[in-house]
Computed example of a mutant assay.
Amino acid sequence: MRQNLPERMEHGGRVRWHRTRGRGELLDFSANINPYPPDISWTPDPSVLNDYPDDRYEALKEVIGRTFGRDAAEVAVGNGSIELIRAFCSAMLGPGDAACITPPTFAEYEMAVLLAGARCTDESNEAAVRFLCNPNNPTGAFHTRPEVLRLLAATAEQGAYLFLDEAFIELSDPRQSLADVSHENLFVLRSLTKSFAVPGIRFGYGFGTPELIERVETVRLPWTVNTFAESFAIEAFRNYDTLEESREKIARERGWLCDRMAGLGLAYEPPSANYILVEVPMETEVLVERLLRHDILVRDCRSFGLPRHIRVAVRTHEENRQLIEALEACLP
């Protein structure tokens, strides 16, 4: 019997789609990309395309392991973080299982659970997997390391796994990360491409016990991390510490944006990373369309179940100033 598939999820970062439809140059505030990425001296070497990638990605995993104090056998890699979300769910969930997801949050958790044949619930005591996005997308809600450790202990006591998505923690407060924690009931997901501003490369990675990683890697399609992505990732991890400067600049601009939002009478969730969830006093789709006429693209949050909210990325000061000017012109 053919499986009834769920509807595809909506995402931000559709600036190329808009450009192909005559929108011209847009400032993309819909994708949460580091506006102050480290300067990586990397030039693609076309000769690496002559061979298949090493599907074990041994050199890449060694570099990631050294960066985070983990063994290479505790590292998984994928073509963006979404591939690892789906691989994890395919490996760990099946018909009859449930996963605990607390909305609003990243829609791909639900998609991956449903594609694995499992169901979603908001009851943690009946779940085989509990998802936590930290910082959460789109709200920016952020849990400290002690809070997440307590949640991990409670989840493990129920015999469940904690899937901890830290895709934005590198641009927030990495001191709160659990990337260095090895626990049989924990999988930690990360994304390199957001923090180094190369979303077109597509590269995600994660941490777990060797046994858990082996299951995830068995499900993952072979050769999904291409040789250009592997080469860039290795160079980026060698410059990983330089992200501190990015965090400092983002924090300053985030504060400036919040002050200006408050000055416009807009309410927003307390932000913790490089994006802000903003409540707007009008139909979201109307505001989004008005902003497009000012060459500003923001994230329409109706797909998160938030019909009166937009999410805006933190960009450079001049770009943020243009966003505020456009909001002033577009709000009632």
Rank of each mutant, 00 (worst) to 15 (best):
E7C: 09
H11I: 14
R19V: 07
T20P: 00
R23I: 03
F29L: 00
S30H: 06
P37I: 01
D39T: 10
T43A: 11
P46S: 01
N50H: 04
E58G: 01
L60Q: 03
I64M: 07
G69M: 06
R70W: 04
D71K: 11
A72K: 09
E83F: 11
F88H: 10
F88T: 11
M92I: 07
F106C: 13
A107P: 12
M111N: 11
V113L: 09
T121D: 11
E123D: 15
R130W: 07
F131S: 06
L132E: 11
P135D: 05
V148C: 08
L152M: 08
A160S: 11
L162R: 03
F163N: 00
S172G: 05
L178M: 09
F187Q: 01
L192K: 02
S195T: 13
A197T: 01
G200P: 03
V216F: 01
T218F: 06
A229W: 01
E245Y: 01
K249L: 15
A251T: 14
R254N: 11
W256I: 11
R260W: 10
Y268R: 00
P271V: 13
R290Y: 03
D295E: 08
D295G: 02
L297D: 02
P307E: 08
I310M: 04
R311K: 12
H317R: 15
R321S: 14
E325W: 09
